[in-house]
């Protein structure tokens, strides 16, 4: 579904990715893990088009991704950034409606379905985006991504800064999406969260993939744990 080959990217002169390769299979959850600052978020930003691809290739459903994020979004790549980026000046409902413009005539995801999926948002629809708690923001960020009827969901650290109870809720919801067949690319620091969801894992080290395998492989590989995750 999503294939990165020799991806080079970074910020202006600063190169962060030095030939990143991995493949996200359709219908799978792929976890991209690694220590702080190895380039996980940079990888995601390059995939969606926020950062220019300096070398290598990224293919989505067989054809190259576009330079502009809005085209990639229209083609079905939905992004939930590390900072969630809820529009604070829009109501929760407006945040969702805005994303819903991308979906076709008979959208799979409607506001009603998102509320059903994340009941916490139900009483918050008319609230401003800036009035939400961290957990609600994360739910809205995921709900907003779903409203675009994505083919792949790109999630950057969805558990960051959240209380354990909220993390559990989000975990259950992502499980539900996974069993519905959603393709997910997940960057996460919370290892048990990531391994509980992932089929495949890529471990990143200094802008390259240093280890790849299944979630089960990683569970049994203490060396990889130690070397690339520092646990």
């Amino acid at each position: 579904m999503l294939e990165l080959k020799g991806v080079v990217s970074g910020y202006g002169e600063t190169r962060v990715l030095h030939g990143t390769d991995f493949v996200v299979a359709a219908g799978s959850v792929h976890a991209l893990l690694g220590r702080n600052g190895v380039g996980k978020s940079t990888t995601l930003k390059t995939i969606i088009g926020h950062l220019p691809l300096q070398d290598g290739s990224i293919a989505f459903q067989g054809s190259s991704i576009d330079r502009s994020p809005q085209v990639n979004a229209r083609r079905g790549i939905a992004y939930v950034p590390e900072t969630r980026d809820i529009f604070g000046s829009l109501s929760v409902q407006e945040n969702l409606e805005l994303a819903g413009r991308l979906a076709g005539v008979n959208p799979e995801w409607t506001i009603a379905r998102v509320i059903d999926f994340f009941p916490n948002l139900k009483d918050r629809l008319s609230n401003g985006g800036q009035e939400l708690s961290g957990g609600e923001q994360q739910m809205l960020a995921i709900g907003r991504a779903l409203m675009t009827d994505p083919k792949v969901l790109v999630l950057d650290e969805p558990t960051e800064g959240l209380a354990p109870i909220i993390i559990q809720q989000i975990f259950a919801k992502l499980k539900e999406l996974k069993s519905g067949g959603m393709t997910v690319l997940l960057v996460e620091q919370n290892l048990s969260f990531a391994l509980g969801l992932a089929d495949d894992v890529s471990l990143m080290s200094r802008g390259q993939i240093a280890w790849r395998g299944t979630a089960t492989d990683l569970r049994n590989d203490d060396v990889a744990h130690e070397k690339y995750l520092g646990v």
């Binding site: 969606i48 088009g49 926020h50 502009s68 994020p69 809005q70 979004a73 229209r74 992004y79 950034p81 980026d85 529009f87 604070g88 000046s89 829009l90 407006e94 945040n95 409606e97 805005l98 994303a99 413009r101 991308l102 907003r144 675009t148």
Partner: peptide, 24 residues
């Protein structure tokens, strides 16, 4: 209006607006 929401969203966070398919 929805156009208004798109404008407000784009003023607030252009990058995220683009990532949601808005032709900023």
């Amino acid at each position: 209006t929805q156009i208004g929401a798109m404008i407000r969203a784009s003023v607030e966070n252009e990058a995220m607006a683009k990532a949601l398919g808005i032709n900023v």
